[in-house]
Design a protein around this nucleic acid. Structure first.
Lengths: 146, 146
DNA sequence: TATTGTTATACTCTATAACTATA
DNA sequence: TATAGTTATAGAGTATAACAATA
């Protein structure tokens, strides 16, 4: 098997995975960016919109829109920052926490479907390869950015 | 290494790969769909817009827009279908053929950067795993669609 | 003077529907 | 009556710039 065939497989897998994720998120009424925003909040607890914008790599203006829509959907709340009257704090609602739990469970199922049948030794080996690829790509992209 | 860690790596690789492709295509003045359209033409030769719409999974209306823009960019031409006066035939220009050649070369380089260092035996083994994943995902997605 | 977030505006990508010319 | 493609229109997602309130 030559390197181009390997890349070909990898690209097809990426496409399928991304498409699958997108469909799943749409089914929950989330765009990929909104889901990302919820995950960021899940990890950090309450956050300013400015912080969310930085974490997501989007404009503050865009975060305003996202937060507005997530509030309408009942997944986050906005409240004044106790110490900085310019800022607001965004927090997950209990409904969003439940949603994220469900997404985590779904992800566990997918992981099991994809890799569950591999014997432990092969899992380890595949893990090494994937970590390696992950790393190589990060380096390549870093290099391009400069 | 557990299955979730494997999925985690795979998702990060997918993201990086998709982002990298997108940036590269933007640099060439192409959106992912336009690049796809050019590849379809590369494979099929001249084609009707209706055929392109089906191949890309998009609406005929959208193909009209894409073709308009690709004509402006000098990458395809539109000419009347010789036998069906309702239809038009879309063809690649020599400039587009050169562009696709360049993209192919770029892809070869990436494949080599990602997998070139692997000894042949490990390449074969990784190839099997990836083909397997590819297949598993296809089955899962098929199942969801029904 | 700098920062947080919002109002106003616009651009890109994609979709639906109605229509014209032809089969 | 059905098909190929276009005109008209609209929606989602994202960006820039100008601005108000606060630091």
């Amino acid at each position: 098997m030559n390197t181009e065939q390997l890349l070909d497989h990898l690209l097809r897998i990426s496409d399928a995975l991304a498409g699958d994720m997108d469909r799943y998120l749409r089914g929950l009424g989330l765009t990929p960016v909104k889901a990302h925003l919820l995950w960021v909040l899940h990890g950090s607890g309450a956050a300013r919109q400015r912080e969310l914008a930085t974490a997501l790599g989007h404009t503050p203006r865009h975060v305003t829109t996202l937060v507005d829509e997530l509030i309408t959907a009942g997944q986050v709340t906005r409240r004044p920052h106790p110490e900085d009257r310019r800022a607001v704090l965004i927090e997950l609602t209990p409904a969003a926490v439940r949603l994220l739990d469900e997404m985590t469970a779904e992800r566990t199922v997918l992981a099991e479907q994809l890799f569950g049948h591999l014997p432990s030794g092969e899992r380890t080996q595949l893990g090494r390869r994937l970590a390696d690829l992950d790393q190589t790509l990060a380096v390549l992209i870093e290099a391009q950015d400069s």
